[in-house]
Amino acid sequence: MLADRIRAMGAPHWIGLYAAILAAWAVLWAMAAASAPGGLADIYGAAFWEALCAPAADAAGLGRLWAMWALMGAAMMAPTALPAFATYEDLGHAAPTRFWALAGGYLAVWAGFAAFAALAQTGLWQVGLLDPLGASTSAALTAVLLALAGLYQFSPLKEACLSRCRAPLTFFMAHWNDGPWRMGLRLGAVCLGCCWALMALAFVGGTMNLGFMALGMMLMALEKLPMGRVLTRPLGALLLAAAALVAAGVI
């Protein structure tokens, strides 16, 4: 069975999904390289690359930030949904069109979240709480974000959403008649309920911090697995401890 699943995940539509995820990471790397000495900024000019990710209080600036957050959603969250996508394919022997409809609905939710995140980043930058690369410049904001994420790890809503993510078979059987697009939207909404607070920590590490993105992706992927039950509450306690240390000025 495992060998069959591995072979199935080498089908063209799966390879297309992997390529899209890698492309999202590649574009994010190009944006992050703007501030790296000797990197792409020196080749193409710093102004060109900084314009791709710098906030601005106009439609163009919001559009760029939306694109950046949408790429973050694809790069970080699509990998966490791979077990669910595989379960869906096992249930219905889904044609590539149905597979892409499910994945499209899922990513559409994160594209919507990207709009709110872009607005938040612009607003926080305008009042001086974020630097141009999306990292907090305020110990108070950092402490609040860490505490919010930590407390949310213990919330019933987080647990309810995680329980659905950890049981994709039950989830799809309950909503099978909705069709792939609507199931993708539902799956994305459940995933958003699991992960929005951890995603908001991008304002602590910096929205162009690839290390944060990779760590966040791994943590959120592990949380969605059955064994992730041992991670959720200890992670919440660690985030609350970090918030207390920041508030006390220790870190």
Rank of each mutant, 00 (worst) to 15 (best):
I43S: 14
L235N: 07
S163P: 03
L28W: 00
M9A: 10
G206W: 05
K158E: 00
R98H: 15
D4E: 08
L201A: 01
A33V: 00
A41K: 08
A237W: 06
G184P: 07
P79I: 02
A30I: 09
A54M: 02
A56R: 13
L219M: 15
A57M: 12
L239M: 08
L28T: 01
F212I: 05
A167I: 04
A94T: 15
A103E: 00
A86Q: 10
A103I: 09
A11N: 08
A23Q: 01
G73D: 03
G39N: 12
G211H: 11
V27T: 14
A111P: 09
L119R: 05
V127A: 07
A135W: 01
M173R: 15
A59L: 15
G73E: 00
L215H: 04
A202R: 03
A41W: 01
T170P: 06
A26I: 02
N209T: 03
G39D: 04
L124V: 00
D90I: 10
G205I: 10
A8L: 12
L239F: 11
Y44E: 02
L141P: 05
L40D: 04
A135E: 01
R64W: 08
A167G: 08
A167N: 14
L201S: 00
S138Q: 02
V109A: 09
G179A: 06
T122V: 09
A244I: 05
L245G: 11
M220C: 05
W176L: 12
L107H: 14
G39S: 13
G216M: 09
L239Q: 09
T97R: 14
A41L: 03
G206A: 06
V230I: 15
G211A: 14
L222R: 14
A34E: 01
D58Y: 11
L65T: 06
L28G: 03
T122P: 01
M9G: 11
L107F: 13
C53P: 01
A111W: 11
L124N: 03
L222W: 14
A3K: 13
D58V: 13
D42H: 06
L17G: 03
G205R: 08
